[in-house]
Every structure is written in C-alpha cells, then in structure tokens.
Design a protein around this nucleic acid. Structure first.
Lengths: 240, 240
DNA sequence: ACGTCAAGAAATGTGCACATTCAGTTGGAG
DNA sequence: CTCCAACTGAATGTGCACATTTCTTGACGT
C-alpha cells in the first residue's frame, strides 16, 4: 500500500473540481460568468495549476466552455440544447423502463421499492434538498438496475447536464423532478410488468420536465467570484 | 477576430491527440501497452507537456486508462464491456431508426440514399479502407438526420469505442460492419416508413457485430513505441 | 467630440527544473 | 540457495517563471 500522500495528493484535484461543481450546482455561478484562474486559485487557496487542471476537466465534460486565449466560461444553455438533451434521455430511459418491465431480479425490485419509499418520506418531511438529490438518483438507479455500467455512466452525465440548467435557472424555487408521484407510478408499472405503460409514463414525465424548465429561462447577472464561493471553498481533505 | 496563431498553437495539441488516436485506430498499440510520456515526446517530436495534456484528454474520453503514479495504458476491453457498449447503442439506434421511419425530410432521404449508394460503390471496388470509414459514418449519419447534435456527439463517441475494439483485435482482417447490405436494408425500411422492421433490422445488425467481435479476442503482445508510430507522427499543421 | 491607435497591465499558455514515487536490482542474512 | 530489504534508476506529478495574447486606459489626430 502507498506510504503517505503527505502533501497535495489526488484528493486536492477532486476538491477543487468538486468545489466548482458545487458552486454551479448551488446556482452561485450565472451563465456567462468568466472563471479566472488566478482569482479562483486565490479564493480556493490552491495553486493555479490545480485550478487549471480542474477547469480543463470540467470543459471536457461539458460543464464549462473554453475559448482559446480568452478563458473558461459558464455556458448558457439554450432551450434548444436542453430539449435535445432531454430527447436523448427519452430514447434511453424509455428503453430502460421497457427492459426492466420485461424482466428484473428480485433484488432490483427491492431496491426500486426502497427508493420510492425514501422519496415519499422526503416528500412528507418537505426536505427539498434530499428530494432534489433523490429525484436525480431515481433515474440513475433505473440505469444501474439494467446492470450496464456504460449505460449508467452515460445517463449520469446526461442527467447532470439536465439538472445544471435547473440549478443555474431557478436554484431553490423548484425541485428537479416535477411530480414525485410520477416516480412512484413509473416504478409501479415496471414492477407490474407493463412495459408500454411504463415507457409512456416516463416519456410524459420527461416531457413535463422540459416544459417546466422552458418556463424558467436563466438570468445573466454578473457574479463576484469570492462571494460565489463563500462557504464552499475546497473542503479540506481528512487530516491524518 | 483573432489575428493568427503564429507558432505552435492549438493545432499542436490536436496533432498529438490525433497521432495517438490514429495509432490505436491502426492497431499499432496492443491492449496493455504502457504509453510513456518521455518516449512519446521523443518519438512525436514535441514537449512532454503536450503529450501529457493529450494523454489526460484521452483518459477522460475513455480511450486510455490512467493509474496514479504508474502511467497511462491502452485498455484491454473485456467482452462484457464491449457487449455493454453495443447494448447502449442498440437502445439509441433502435429509437433513431424508429423516429426516422415515422417521419423525415426529403433532404434526409436524399442523404441516406446517397450514402448507401456510396457504400455499394466502395463494396464493388473492394475498397476496404473507404468501406471501413463509410460503415461507421452510416450510423453517425442516422443520428445526424434526427437533427439532434447531442445525440450525434454521444453516438459518435460510442461508435469510436466500438470500432476501437475492432482495430485493436483484428485490424485489417475484417470490416467494422458485418454485411454492407445490412445498411441498405435498414435504409430501405426507413424510407418505406416501416418502423418496426427498421428497428428489428438494426438490432439484428448490431447483434451480428457483437458475435463477430466476440469471435476475435484481442491479443496482448508487447509493442515497441517508435515502431508503432512509424510514419504517423504528428502530422504537420497547415502552413499559412 | 468621436474614432483610432498605441502602450501598459493582466490573464492565459508553455516550457523547464525539481520533488516524489515506483520498478528493477543488488547485497546480505538466515 | 532462497528470501527479504535497501538502493538505484527512471518515470510521474507539481510548482514556478517566462512568453504570448488580449483587454483596458490614455492620448492623439481628424
């Protein structure tokens, strides 16, 4: 086993990466914001190269946009781009629920029921943060139950980009999945083996999300970087 | 407007990236090969940082695997991973051909016919290289005809990873799509508006590719780096 | 007064040198 | 003779300093 990653180890990269990602997820960074490397390095308390690497990674994954010799910016997703992402999700997730409806293991059914129950609990307690998280995990869970890692990874990326628009547009005014009971209905159809119904419900569910997002266009306000990362920063790795 | 990127500009990055990608595509790099940064930099005639950046990008895109403090390696795709990729492709491409069957523009039909004709020409001339390229483009074309950029980008990535296995396993012994006439049949079904038939043909087509690839397991032979990049190198950027 | 151009400053991109870590090897002890 | 341990070599990872480019500020000319 490795001795001791005494100084800045791999966790530092993940910390910077996660900090920026979290700031976007919390709606602190408005679309069009320029992410300057020196400023970020100063705010996060790390070297510029760390910020640089994290930025490059975020750009490659589609969460930021880079212009050569200009800098990296928070992308402003158009309604059309968002619609296209949901279109791909519709194709994949319809196929997913169909497959699960036509056959799934007992443990899969158990996990699905458990998740729906957890969502209902969060809804009853009006825990918005937890519900936001669970609503996204529901769609990832369906992919996982297919037992296809590639599918899971792909869908997770698509879902992140979907929710990004939610976060940037209207951070706390709405949850990321319209009706939580939608998930319950879909799960019920899957467990009942009704493939057509499950697919239809899923398509309707996703279509509802599109119209919901289209109604909340993102705003373009200038953002102060130190203010945006207030309280986030790079959370310090566990001291040993 | 930007003046002119006079010296080694963004094209240099793309050149290194493309060189490695081309070497893999040509089957020069066997699975398990370690890509050493100094050696690559010496062979390609660029600085180590360039190689480093290209390697990181390739790792992020899933074409290479990185182990911290160990290096980057050419991944050895298992049969299971390959099957999963084709499974995702089946979901997407079945939905694609269904959608195109249910409705497409006149120009879309024209492009589709033109592509099939070109494939037939290449087949008649026994032009393996061209046919290899066209066979892959066919699937991307179907995605493009849906008018969804996100879908096109996603499918292109999936297809690249699929053909990578072909390249690594049996470079020149077989083409990347089993029967070229398969494409013709699929196109015919689409143009005829027969959604179910088109989807069925596509699923069968992809399933055929899986069994074809499963029959040719990749070999693990040591590779000499300078030999692998013989004649490839970083192709010179266009002189202005 | 307005548009244009030039010089300074700041940010991005790049190369280099050093610290750290891992693999292969050699020496010694049991 | 075998096994373990420390050493040596190279490769990876990181920080720093410099070159290049772009944006801003100011002055000049029309």
């Amino acid at each position: 086993m490795p001795r001791k990653p005494r100084k800045g180890d791999v966790a530092a990269d993940e910390a910077v990466y996660g900090a920026i990602r979290r700031a976007m997820h919390m709606g602190r960074l408005a679309p069009g914001t320029k992410l300057q490397e020196p400023a970020l390095a100063r705010v996060l308390g790390v070297s510029r190269e760390r910020v640089r690497k994290a930025l490059h990674r975020l750009v490659h994954e589609g969460w930021l946009t880079a212009i050569p010799n200009r800098g990296t910016f928070v992308p402003s997703l158009t309604i059309e781009e968002m619609r296209q992402i949901y279109d791909v999700r519709s194709m994949l997730e319809a196929a997913i629920v169909r497959r699960l409806s036509e056959g799934h293991t007992a443990s899969a059914a158990k996990r699905l029921k458990a998740h729906v129950a957890e969502e209902k609990t969060a809804t009853r307690r009006d825990d918005r943060g937890r519900l936001f998280e669970l609503s996204g995990d529901f769609h990832v869970l369906l992919a996982e139950l297919c037992g296809n890692d590639e599918l899971t990874r792909l869908l997770r990326g698509l879902l992140t980009r979907s929710t990004m628009h939610f976060s940037l547009a209207a951070p706390r005014q709405l949850t990321n999945c319209a009706g939580p009971h939608d998930h319950g209905d879909i799960a019920e159809a899957i467990l009942g083996g009704k493939a057509d119904k499950a697919a239809k419900l899923m398509l309707g569910h996703l279509a509802g999300l599109v119209t919901l997002q289209a109604a909340h266009p993102p705003r373009h306000e200038p953002v102060d970087l130190p203010e945006a990362f207030r309280g986030i920063k790079a959370r310090r790795p566990d001291r040993d």
